[in-house]
């Protein structure tokens, strides 16, 4: 039975690909702010170009980041629903692993992508194999190795080599905690003047 894989990555841009055996149709929209608008139509377009229907898919692969949270969740939510509705396999892959595979660097290097807030997502690789856990830091804190990225993730690579990537689970790799503070004591609501008079 032929493998028909739909791959989705929204950790950076909007990227979708369909692999039919060893042939791949990969599409990318270089927009980092319109994931929810673009993703599903892009998947439909990739399937149409590959000449297959959703119902024929056997596998879904999804990049689980790290990446800006809101866009990342768009891809993971869509991928999980597609797999659920079709009753087919789904695998989550670290998006940096896909990025690292896009390079043709020899030896040790880091794959990096934009984490906004003047930071980068990164991990160390040798020949496409990850040597460190994905991290988010200031660019200065990254080991002095050749850098690949920031770059758009190619979902085509994810679709073609899905079996070769380590399973990263289906929970996004957030790396950062939510911005939330436990509130301190309420501030005084009394006019300042009145407090001085006390």
């Amino acid at each position: 039975m032929k493998r028909l894989t739909l791959a989705i990555d929204t950790s950076a841009t909007v990227s979708a690909a369909v692999a039919v055996g060893g042939e791949v149709t990969a599409l990318n929209i270089p927009d980092t702010r319109a994931h929810v608008e673009q993703l599903v139509p892009l998947c439909q377009q990739a399937l149409a170009q590959a000449g297959i229907e959703f119902s024929e898919l056997t596998d879904v692969a999804v990049g689980v980041g790290p990446g800006p949270f809101t866009g990342l969740r768009v891809g993971v939510a869509a991928a999980r629903v597609i797999a659920e509705a079709l009753g087919i396999r789904i695998k989550g892959v670290c998006s940096l692993d896909v990025l690292a595979r896009q390079s043709n660097f020899d030896g040790e290097y880091v794959a990096v992508n934009d984490a906004r807030r003047k930071e980068l997502y990164w991990a160390r690789y040798q020949d496409g194999v990850r040597l460190s856990e994905p991290a988010v830091t200031a660019p200065e804190a990254i080991p002095p190795l050749p850098r690949f990225g920031p770059a758009d993730i190619d979902a085509g690579i994810l679709a073609l080599y899905v079996d070769e990537f380590p399973d990263a689970g289906l929970e996004p790799l957030y790396l950062r905690r939510p911005d939330a503070e436990v509130p301190s004591k309420p501030k005084s609501a009394l006019p300042v003047i009145r407090r001085r008079a006390r």
Partner: peptide, 20 residues
């Protein structure tokens, strides 16, 4: 909330596309 809305919206779109 934007971040919350897009999770449901993305799921719904995927469901609509798959089931036609």
């Amino acid at each position: 909330l934007m971040g919350a809305l897009v999770v449901g919206l993305s799921a719904a779109k995927a469901l609509a596309a798959v089931t036609n």
